[in-house]
Design a binder for these strands. Sequence first.
DNA 1: CGTTTTCTTGAATCAACTCAATACGAGTGG
DNA 2: CCACTCGTATTGAGTTGATTCAAGAAAACG
Lengths: 244, 244
Amino acid sequence: MLQQSGSHSCQSCQVRHLSILSRMSTERLGQIAQDFNPSVITFGGQDTIYYQGDSARYAYTVRSGFVKLLSILPNGRTHIVRVLHTGDLLGFEGIVGGKYAHTAMALTKVDVCRFALSELMALKQNYAEVDGMLTQRWIQSLTKAEDMLVELGAKKTGERLGAFLVRWCESAPKGIEGWVPLPLSRAEVGELLGMTVETVSRALSEWKRQGLFQERGGFIRLPDVERLCATVCNISRSEVLNVG
Amino acid sequence: MLQQSGSHSCQSCQVRHLSILSRMSTERLGQIAQDFNPSVITFGGQDTIYYQGDSARYAYTVRSGFVKLLSILPNGRTHIVRVLHTGDLLGFEGIVGGKYAHTAMALTKVDVCRFALSELMALKQNYAEVDGMLTQRWIQSLTKAEDMLVELGAKKTGERLGAFLVRWCESAPKGIEGWVPLPLSRAEVGELLGMTVETVSRALSEWKRQGLFQERGGFIRLPDVERLCATVCNISRSEVLNVG
DNA sequence: CGTTTTCTTGAATCAACTCAATACGAGTGG
DNA sequence: CCACTCGTATTGAGTTGATTCAAGAAAACG
């Protein structure tokens, strides 16, 4: 499934406040209309948005749904590098080296806004607001990647899974009554956190039994975050997340 | 040990070609002299350049020597996030959030060029060459961090160590006859790759016996990279433990 | 409804860790 | 120069956390 619904107007975009254009005034937005021609495209779950190594012509912003970025090793193993949702930018790394660094795959039905990298670069040069947002995004992605690196390098499986769940529930778009969508299979969680399906399943089952974790049709809930953190490594929430 | 040798001239800088100013013409360089006032500072091995969480006023470029960036977890464990050498930029993340994300520590005697973040940001705004270089650096660090993430998430200890050695020998400044400086203790290699001192030591000793790895006073050499890779990827128990 | 995929659970195995002891090397001071 | 220390590296033995292999149970799908 792949559906293209033509060019949209940035002015009327519902998720612009989450995008790299969030700092732009409405009048400035009008100016860019001629040089910036994004398309809105819809992908179905499991669809590939682009492939690792493909020559990169476009970058994308997620309008709705979830996307995973994965790195495929020569030996066939795959690792999920990042999971993206509304407002996140992907494919931008193409401006250095000209190739996509990962394969981007839709985890759910996904709406993206697609635009040429060349147009984005022009925008960055001519509009300080865009340049500032891009800078901010990179530093944030770098910080996030490095945080993950520390997770993988210095923590045990249980701690990693616990920290992941807590962070996910805090950052993902919330549903009702604390139920948060988690469009990842056990296997995918494993690929993200560097552990096997079985290990993920065992830990989640155990926490379910202890009333620390609930799940219903693709949504999850953590009834007692403090206690989960304590159980996982006998430390507080802030320590699990490594925040001051 | 900390020694400040006052402001230097970018024009006469020996390592400018490796820095974020590499793309600037000599005449353009003259223009920035009034607004850009870097200092050259020397640190001794083990000195801390800045601390994780400190409010960030400066960024630095490594002129010579090696620097480690480390993340310290609440439970006391530390993880080395990156090792930097000549030409690398550090501390730049301070422009978002205003704090350093890591502790930067000198592994050897180190010369850095220090400049105010505010000055760097002004430079970035006024000179497209600098902006371009920063962008490039940023994407490269992100790509590197994500590569490391995959290493930690999807590979076993031997594979990680092997890959690290090969990469190090390819990217570090070379000495004579293939001897490359490695200013990291076994413990530090472990902190970088998420394994214990003992595991690092065991693998290196084994490879030494097999003639795949040599070491002399802080310098290392890989006589047969191909065979090392072959050995590392066939993770047979008898080979690793040398039994049978 | 059966079929397929995903999830769970158990048992056995193994890689990597911890603990512990020894060896090496650099530096210090008698 | 040797004995002493201190930090680092090596090596061994035992333990354990996580994996692999395998078999059921539960969802999801057409």
